[in-house]
Design a protein around this nucleic acid. Structure first.
Ligand SMILES: [Mn+2]
Ligand SMILES: [Mn+2]
Ligand SMILES: [Zn+2]
Ligand SMILES: [Zn+2]
Lengths: 138, 138
DNA sequence: CACTACTTTAGAATCATTATAAATTGCATG
DNA sequence: CATGCAATTTATAATGATTCTAAAGTAGTG
């Protein structure tokens, strides 16, 4: 979908220099068809396996955080001891499979539109997200 | 609502000895009309202020975790860097005020019943919870 | 009172994340 | 393409919330 020079453009256009570390991480994160949900620990392991060049852990943290700041990643909090990042940055709902700890996107059409009948004075709604915890049958 | 001897009963009946530390924490957590959402840091501060006896931090952690295990508290993950506990242990929805970092319960009638139209083979739904992020108008 | 298991506690250990500061790299400029 | 500078990477140290440890204290039982 996105080729290497696509990523170079993307990074440049948001004021990030296209270093080889960032490009490596871009390829891993964004060169796929389905949403990718990961923790920084996951990402670090995958980078170790799938890459010959070694990227320092500090750089992985730095990169994920700058991608988040630029809006290329979204952080999802579903469990105290795991912080997930999501390549799908739109507002969307999730299954959380508590048997495997896996996050799965729900599509627009999988969930009825949600109406919140309460409002608080001086406050407006910024986002509405549903988390559906699932587990193995029996 | 719940008096001291009520708490003693409650603790005994779930196999927890009613120590003065636990009773102190019970009074603070459960002797109120509205749901209480707190972090362990919050709780620790409040205990320091509102109590003359000093309860060690380890005990606060121990107590909150055993109350959670016994089903008297529920843990809510809405932000990586804060883990909230909730005295409302039912499945329910929340506002999260991102201007103040405050969690607010939504009542049953505040949110339409949610239908999930997708299902995964071999998996069943355990809970459905909505998080509505709100912020100050302008 | 005496016994035992449970609980509390101070302090140490852990571990994910962040900070630091020196070395390296991208890139603009001439 | 050589130079200069800011951005970036990196190894390492620091941080801080949580958990662990093991010793001292306490509740319940008879
Ligand atoms: Mn958890
Ligand atoms: Mn956050
Ligand atoms: Zn997602
Ligand atoms: Zn609540």
């Amino acid at each position: 979908m996105n080729n290497n020079s696509g990523f170079i453009e993307k990074l440049r256009s948001s004021g990030l220099r296209p270093t080889k570390q960032r490009l490596e991480i871009c390829k891993l994160l964004f060169d796929r068809k389905k949403t990718f949900h990961f923790t920084i620990g996951d990402l670090s392991k995958i980078l170790k396996k799938e890459t010959n060049k070694k990227i320092s852990l500090a750089t992985i943290y730095n990169t994920v955080h700058s991608f988040k700041k630029k809006g290329y990643l979204k952080e999802i909090s579903v469990d105290r001891e795991k912080s997930y990042f999501d390549t799908n940055t739109s507002n969307h709902h999730h299954f959380l499979d508590i048997s495997t700890n896996e996050l799965i996107d729900l599509k627009e059409e999988d969930v009825d539109n949600i109406k919140i009948k309460k409002s608080l004075p001086g406050k407006k709604i910024k986002s509405i997200e549903v988390l559906v915890k699932i587990e193995n049958n029996n």
